[in-house]
Simulated scan of single mutants.
Amino acid sequence: MEGGARVTVKAVVIIAGDNNVRGSLQFIQDPSGITHVKGKITGLSPGLHGFHIHALGDTTNGCNSTGATF
């Protein structure tokens, strides 16, 4: 990038899990470096849930090929 231009970076995750768990998430990092996460997940059982993020989307060798966890 010439002149140190700052850009917005985006990524999308499509979720297709067990028991009809489906959804999508959008990760949007604005030029200041702040990352916003928004989306919708359906099919979860009632109660609290959490998720973690891997550095890579490569699942060819399970979690061994997905890189660092955030």
Results as ranks from 00 to 15, higher is better:
27 F>R: 03
65 S>F: 03
38 K>C: 09
7 V>P: 00
61 N>S: 11
2 E>L: 15
64 N>P: 00
45 S>W: 03
68 A>V: 02
57 G>W: 11
70 F>H: 00
1 M>P: 09
2 E>F: 12
2 E>C: 12
40 K>R: 15
1 M>A: 11
8 T>Y: 02
7 V>A: 10
27 F>I: 01
16 A>F: 04
2 E>T: 14
21 V>R: 12
43 G>N: 10
41 I>D: 07
1 M>W: 04
15 I>V: 15
24 S>P: 01
17 G>H: 01
44 L>K: 02
50 G>Y: 14
69 T>V: 10
47 G>W: 05
40 K>T: 13
17 G>A: 08
51 F>E: 09
40 K>W: 06
44 L>Y: 05
70 F>L: 02
41 I>T: 06
21 V>E: 07
10 K>Q: 14
22 R>C: 01
42 T>V: 10
62 G>H: 00
67 G>L: 04
70 F>S: 01
18 D>H: 03
44 L>M: 13
14 I>P: 00
5 A>P: 00
20 N>Y: 01
40 K>M: 11
39 G>V: 03
21 V>Q: 11
37 V>M: 04
4 G>S: 11
57 G>A: 15
19 N>D: 11
60 T>C: 10
67 G>N: 04
17 G>C: 06
38 K>F: 07
41 I>F: 08
33 G>P: 12
32 S>Y: 03
4 G>P: 00
35 T>V: 15
58 D>N: 15
57 G>L: 12
3 G>M: 15
54 H>K: 09
37 V>C: 07
28 I>T: 13
23 G>E: 03
17 G>S: 05
70 F>Y: 02
29 Q>I: 01
67 G>H: 02
9 V>R: 10
5 A>D: 14
59 T>L: 10
64 N>S: 10
9 V>W: 03
54 H>P: 12
23 G>S: 10
6 R>E: 12
31 P>C: 02
6 R>I: 00
45 S>L: 15
4 G>C: 04
23 G>R: 08
50 G>N: 13
24 S>T: 03
13 V>K: 06
4 G>D: 09
55 A>R: 14
34 I>T: 13
39 G>N: 05
9 V>N: 09
9 V>F: 07
67 G>Q: 03
53 I>H: 11
67 G>D: 04
14 I>L: 09
17 G>L: 04
59 T>F: 06
44 L>G: 06
53 I>T: 12
39 G>S: 07
1 M>T: 07
59 T>S: 15
32 S>Q: 06
9 V>S: 08
67 G>K: 04
14 I>N: 12
19 N>Q: 11
53 I>F: 13
48 L>Y: 13
25 L>A: 01
7 V>T: 13
